[in-house]
Design a protein around this nucleic acid. Sequence first.
DNA 1: TGCAACTGTAACAAATATAATAACAGTAAG
DNA 2: CTTACTGTTATTATATTTGTTACAGTTGCA
Lengths: 143, 143
Amino acid sequence: MNSEFTIAVHSLVFLAYRPDRMATSEMIALNVNTHPSRVRKIMSCLRKQGFVRTKEGIGGGFIFNRSPDQVTLAEIYRATSIGSIKPAWCSGNEDEDCMVACNMAEVMDQVFSEAEQQLIAYFERITVADVLRRVQTAQQFKN
Amino acid sequence: MNSEFTIAVHSLVFLAYRPDRMATSEMIALNVNTHPSRVRKIMSCLRKQGFVRTKEGIGGGFIFNRSPDQVTLAEIYRATSIGSIKPAWCSGNEDEDCMVACNMAEVMDQVFSEAEQQLIAYFERITVADVLRRVQTAQQFKN
DNA sequence: TGCAACTGTAACAAATATAATAACAGTAAG
DNA sequence: CTTACTGTTATTATATTTGTTACAGTTGCA
């Protein structure tokens, strides 16, 4: 799977964690450990889906636009990474004179698509607030 | 996800489809549409797990060693691709002075690991024989 | 009005992962 | 002892992912 999902989740958790629910791409990038430009690209996608709003210019940044306990990982997955569990490579060959060769690509497509539904059903049960709580729990075990 | 899973499933379905349940790496590679060497590498892994046995020398090849309706995609996934839904890239930074930065990698690890269990639970319900039947069904819809 | 701190986006470069290919030793049948 | 196979490693080619740079557009404020 695509790491954009990870970055999107991390960014939203970070925003949820901040008292003002706001941060610049530079702050997020430092926290996530990537380049601010990559953060902006992914946040731009989250903005188009209404997860965050942005403020340009001085004192600007990204602002969490919804309640962290209402946003599920399923929504984030759909926004950033839908289709990413299926490998790009496809087996089989339509021109072959064999039922298996001709139809495996289509059948595996179905299988991966159903598998992805299972994954999404699981992500449906986890919110950004849940992830933040898990982070807090993990932290407590260190102390 | 790794396409080795796809190739492994396709290869076993192809073997299950053959009356003698046997084929050479060249035949499988032609059917799957890849290089025989790649097939041998993946089949070699399936042999070590007991899914197939091999016969070297003239007249040799790979032979399905179990009943197609007993082998689930979950077993094949575990044999070839375990851990592959988690992206290699990890977010966060242990050295950062922030709870979120320090613990997100661990938390996302848990999340991906649980997600993979869901995936495997789904694959548990599909056998090689089921996939072959799906191939047959797909074929019928073309005629 | 003009500078400074932001986002938005595209283009490019670097790194990494994946797939194809070649090569050759080992094995078994005839 | 030759031919048709697997087993395995190494190498090359290709695709994908990530990082980086650059710059236009926006906004707040002195």
